[in-house]
Computed example of a mutant assay.
Amino acid sequence: MAFRRRAKSHPLFSQEFLIHNHADIGFCLVLSVLIALMFEVTAKTAFLFILPQYNVSVPTADGELVQYHYGLKDLVTILFYIFIAIILHAVVQEYALDKINRRLHLSKVKHSKFNESGQLVAFHLTSVIWCLYVVVTEGYISNPQSLWENYPHVYLPYQVKFFYLCQLAYWLHALPELYFQKVRKEEIPRQLRCIALYLLHIAGAYLLNLTRLGLILLLLQYLAEFFFHMARLVYFTDENNEKLFNVWAVVFVVTRLFTLTLYILVIGFGLPRVESQALDPERGNFFSFLFNNILFRMSVLLLVCLFQASVMWRFIHFQLRRWREYWNEQSSRKRAAAAASTKQQTKLLKRDSGTFSSPPGFAFL
């Protein structure tokens, strides 16, 4: 399966060969795992790559409910879905973004930003729909108290665990994509910082058993990011159309307020209501034991508030710079229009005065 048409072949296992064929290599590895499912000898190993592990039967009033917890085998599953993400990245790039780029004829810098925003629009839209479906079906929105009730949430429903594994796989796949997409050196620090922040927050929510709160926060964050990258795509197609940036600004501020409110509600007021328990790491209540400590809880809230304040400060600085550039552009346009109007009037006056004046040699008469 070839994702790209190549004008020339490259030496086997060379750097250019790897860059141009990385999606095909990933597809072959995924296909090998799928073929392994067909044989009894290898099926058990193949399932480690495809399905979430550590399932536990939890007794309920209606019978038994199969749920999951995390462990080292999750790394194998994440590795498999990293290759899936690489393949999907190549499909979106080849069959959507490259075709649009050929029509737009963007510069090299805009071309790179257009590809970045195009990939993230597809990912954020998919994640928002998926995350919204999970939080609605699990009842986290209709019952906000479920965000902290019965903490720690050691056992996860299948769709919650699978969502987190796919999220970790996507942001881990973004690291080799910096090399495969030949991202400019100036852009690498910014993108690395963004990837690291997402991995830190998603892995933190997953390992600290704060998956319910993490789902709501991811939904808010991805919603704001979707509008931002959608606004960038529209701007690249029509530089005079900046209306979506205003929509993104409103959504961004609202999501920041909701994010801070949720942190205060869950960590500041919800988790302290959890009954004090003896320290038992095997049961998974180590962090609930810590959250019962007011000093630890207030330290977490302080870090969260400082981080949100820094994000808002950068946003305000960005908006002020954008408005300043907009007004400077408008004033320069007005000055240019006024200069053009004055120049036109001067030409008319010279033409009119030349019609009735004396010849140059008889100006003294």
Rank of each mutant, 00 (worst) to 15 (best):
M1G: 06
V56K: 14
A2H: 11
P359D: 15
L348N: 10
L192V: 08
I84R: 04
G361C: 01
A23H: 08
P157V: 01
H229R: 05
E94Y: 02
Q145W: 01
T342I: 11
G139W: 05
F83D: 10
N292Y: 13
K243E: 13
K8T: 13
F289M: 02
L215C: 03
E116M: 09
S127R: 06
V135W: 04
K73Y: 13
A196R: 14
Q93P: 05
I141W: 08
F252D: 02
E329V: 04
N115V: 12
A249V: 03
Q330G: 04
R6Q: 12
E186V: 15
L172D: 00
V66C: 04
D98S: 12
N293P: 00
L31F: 15
V254C: 06
K44N: 15
Y198K: 04
Y170F: 07
T77E: 12
G361E: 06
E187F: 01
D98Y: 05
V76Y: 09
D280E: 09
Q277A: 06
H22D: 03
A61T: 08
V135A: 00
Q345S: 07
V91N: 04
H201F: 14
L220G: 03
A96W: 12
T346I: 13
Y95G: 03
A309Y: 12
Q167S: 05
R335N: 11
V154Y: 14
L97W: 02
L320S: 08
K185T: 14
E40V: 01
H173I: 00
A363P: 01
R322F: 06
Q181T: 08
L178G: 02
L349R: 13
I188V: 06
F252K: 05
L192M: 09
Q330M: 11
T255I: 00
F17Y: 15
F39I: 07
M230Q: 09
F287P: 02
E64Y: 11
A338F: 10
N55Q: 14
L219N: 00
M298L: 14
H229Y: 15
V300M: 12
E149N: 13
Y155I: 02
V160I: 04
A278C: 07
A85V: 03
T255S: 14
L175M: 08
W171L: 00
L97R: 06
R184I: 08
F291N: 04
L199C: 01
L65T: 12
L97D: 03
K44C: 02
L220P: 00
E225V: 05
P360I: 10
I19A: 03
I35E: 05
Q345G: 03
R321C: 07
Q191T: 11
L168G: 06
L12E: 09
